[in-house]
Structures are given as C-alpha cells and as structure tokens.
C-alpha cells in the first residue's frame, strides 16, 4: 500500500496532526470569557408593579385614625378610654380581613360590627364613613406595607427568571409575544403553587386577539411546570403567598 518514500511523510504528518491537536487542546480553543449580562429586570419592572400604590395608602390611613379621637372628644363620654380603642381599630379591620377573606364572609362581619358600634356610640356615626376602608384595598395594602415595593419588584423578577425556562411559546400567531398576562398565584410556603387564576391581559391588539387565551394558558402551564419556586422565605407572609404575577413572554 505504502510506497517507499511515504514512510517519512506518514510519520511527519502524524506528528504534525498530534502537535496541532495538542496545541488546540491546550490554549487556542479555550473558552473566551463572555461579558455577563447585567440584570436589567428591576429597571424594567418598577413602573409595572401596580402594588406600589397600595403601600402609601396605608400610611395615609394612620393619620386619619389619629385624627378620629379628636372628633370623638367632642361627645361627653369617657375621655381616657377613647384614645386606646380608636388607635386600635384602624389596623383591626384590616388584619382580620386577610384571614377572613380566605374563609367565610357572612360570619366575620359580625365581630367587626360590634367593635365598630362602641366606637359609633362614643364617636359619631360619620366616623366609619370617614375612613375610606374598602375591604379589598385594605386587605391587599395592609400586609404589603411590611415589604418594600423594591423587594416586591425583586420577587417578581426572581419569579420571572424561574418561569421563563419553562415557558414554551405557543406556535403560530403574529405579535403574540407582546401579550402580558397577570396570573394570580396562591403559593404554599415551600414555593409550590396552590392555585393559578388567569387575570387580566394587556398588549392585545387586532392581530393577536385570537391567541390571547392560548398565551394565558401557556403562561399558566409554564408556572405549573416550574412549580416549586425558590423564593426567599422571609418574604412569604404578605409577599408571595398571594402574588399577582405579571408574565411577559419576552
């Protein structure tokens, strides 16, 4: 097979290939360090978190409550006991509401009512009306006041990072990636998802309208697939136990 002058050529070429392989293995093809992507998520999400507005409202309610006793002073009854009850009621309607909301509605209203009535006798009937305590906002705002909006944004970004890898965009449709879906997540303490409710969707236009429900389903599936999430446990209470998660495909 091999002719007489080819032995030397064969040896040379084998040596050359081995040398080249060694050279490439050693340094030439080592992975270059790529610049790491900075996490710009926080910047993007700040104005998206509608929950931010909930926190200041709680802060505004406290002064209102402190003003209430002064109104209450005008009636003749018991000046010393008044400040104590009045300072308490303002958080009181808020906190029970959280636990009650999950439970039955008709039964709980009874306890607040008796509490309110002594006030009404001691203060005035207008007092309760003066406090703009809506059941829904009070419930959402009061617990969240403990966690800063920045931390909530961080939570949303953290959740988004963990959901993204599980997300399979549905095939077909134009401009479907612009549809953002709000998912109401009820979470357990271990990070798993107890229930997912599809909330409102934004970014729907004439082209992608037929795909809106498909996108919402895809987002829900992504959340369920990645279900045990790794989120900071200290932020569970009032943080991500009941979380309005806004998912954008891109």
């Amino acid at each position: 097979m091999m002719q007489k002058g080819e032995g030397a050529g064969f040896g040379l070429s084998v040596i050359g290939h081995g040398g080249l392989l060694a050279l490439l293995s050693l340094n030439l093809m080592s992975v270059r360090e790529m610049p790491k992507l900075s996490q710009s998520m926080d910047v993007m999400l700040v104005d998206k978190a509608g929950l931010v507005s909930g926190a200041p409202q709680v802060a505004q309610e406290a002064p209102q409550a402190s003003e209430a006793p002064e109104v209450a002073d005008t009636p003749e009854d018991a000046p010393p006991p008044d400040p104590a009850p009045t300072s308490r009621p303002t958080p009181a309607p808020a906190k029970p509401a959280v636990s009650q909301k999950a439970a039955e509605k008709p039964a709980p209203p009874a306890p607040p009512a008796p509490k309110a009535k002594p006030k009404a006798t001691s203060l005035s009937n207008d007092f309760l009306k003066g406090i703009p305590v809506e059941k829904s906002t009070g419930k959402a705002a009061a617990p969240r006041a403990a966690i800063s909006p920045l931390a909530m944004n961080g939570l949303a970004a953290l959740l988004l990072q963990q959901v993204r890898p599980c997300y399979n965009p549905p095939a077909g449709g134009t401009d479907t990636a612009s549809i953002a879906t709000v998912l109401d997540l009820k979470m357990k303490r271990d990070g798993s998802v107890a229930s997912v409710q599809i909330g409102e969707q934004t970014g729907i236009n004439a082209q992608n309208r037929p795909y809106a429900s498909q996108m919402a389903d895809a987002a829900r599936r992504a959340v369920l697939r990645c279900s045990p999430f790794k989120l900071p446990v200290e932020l569970y209470e009032g943080g991500w136990d009941d979380f309005a998660f806004r998912f954008r495909p891109s």
């Binding site: 002719q3 002058g5 080819e6 030397a8 050529g9 064969f10 040379l12 070429s13």
Partner: peptide
C-alpha cells in the same frame, strides 16, 4: 476525516519530495 487528513498530508509531504 482525521485519518483522511493524515493520509492526505502523508501524500502531500512524500509527493512533494519525490
């Protein structure tokens, strides 16, 4: 392909010389 490359270079070197 690696064997082909070795064989090619064998032929190139010995062929050029001869």
């Amino acid at each position: 392909l690696l064997l082909a490359s070795v064989w090619t270079w064998t032929i190139i070197l010995s062929g050029t010389i001869s």
